[in-house]
Each structure stands twice: as C-alpha cells, then as structure tokens.
C-alpha cells in the first residue's frame, strides 16, 4: 500500500463525509427544528402542509435516503480512483 496514495484517499473521503454531513445538518436540525417557524411562514406549502412541518416529518427522511445513496456512489468512485475497489479485482 502506497502511503501517499492512502493519505490522499483519506483526505478525499473526509471531504465527502463533511460535505454530506453539512447537508444532513441543514436538512434535519436546520429545516426541521431551528428555522422551522420561519420556513413555515415564508416557504410555499407542500400540498397543504407547512414547509417546516413537512420537512420535519417527511422531507428530511427522503433526503436522508438520497444522502446515503450519494455517499455509496461517491465513495465507490473514490475507491476506484485510488485503486481500492475490491469488486472488480479477481478474487484470489
């Protein structure tokens, strides 16, 4: 294992994790709790539900699923770029 390669991979993976977690925080704590009243008042309703309420009870969950799919894809791509992909290598 090439230590320099590993170091780069490590940094890149942390970047993915941090950006996803920032979105995660904005969606759940941001939209669902902290800014919820403001969103209820100023954002268009989803169907007949106030935006903040909908984010807290439905929207955030949708977004979480999407986040995890994106995570699996991005990390899979990183693995291939840095040569850590195990799926395509022949098994010994």
């Amino acid at each position: 294992m090439d230590p320099k390669n590993a170091e780069h991979y490590h940094r890149a993976s942390l970047r993915v994790v941090f950006s996803l977690l920032t979105i995660w925080f904005m969606i759940s704590f941001g939209c669902g709790i902290l800014f919820r009243d403001w969103l209820d008042a100023n954002f268009p309703t989803i169907g007949t539900a106030p935006f903040g309420f909908w984010m807290a009870q439905q929207g955030s969950i949708f977004c979480f699923v999407v986040l995890l799919i994106v995570y699996a894809l991005l990390m899979g791509r990183l693995d291939s770029t840095y040569g850590y992909n195990e799926e395509k290598e022949p098994t010994q």
């Binding site: 994790v17 996803l20 977690l21 995660w24 759940s28 669902g32 309420f53 807290a56 009870q57 955030s60 969950i61 979480f64 986040l67 995890l68 995570y71």
Partner: peptide, 20 residues
Amino acid sequence: YDGARFLMGWTGGFVLLTVL
C-alpha cells in the same frame, strides 16, 4: 409536530452511523 424528534432522530442517526 413534536413526534418529529423520533422520526428524524432515528433516521438521521442512521446517516451518521453510515458515514462516520
């Protein structure tokens, strides 16, 4: 609305679990 603490807490925690 308060029920959202469980809804978001348990699903959002799963995101943490997976990426961290």
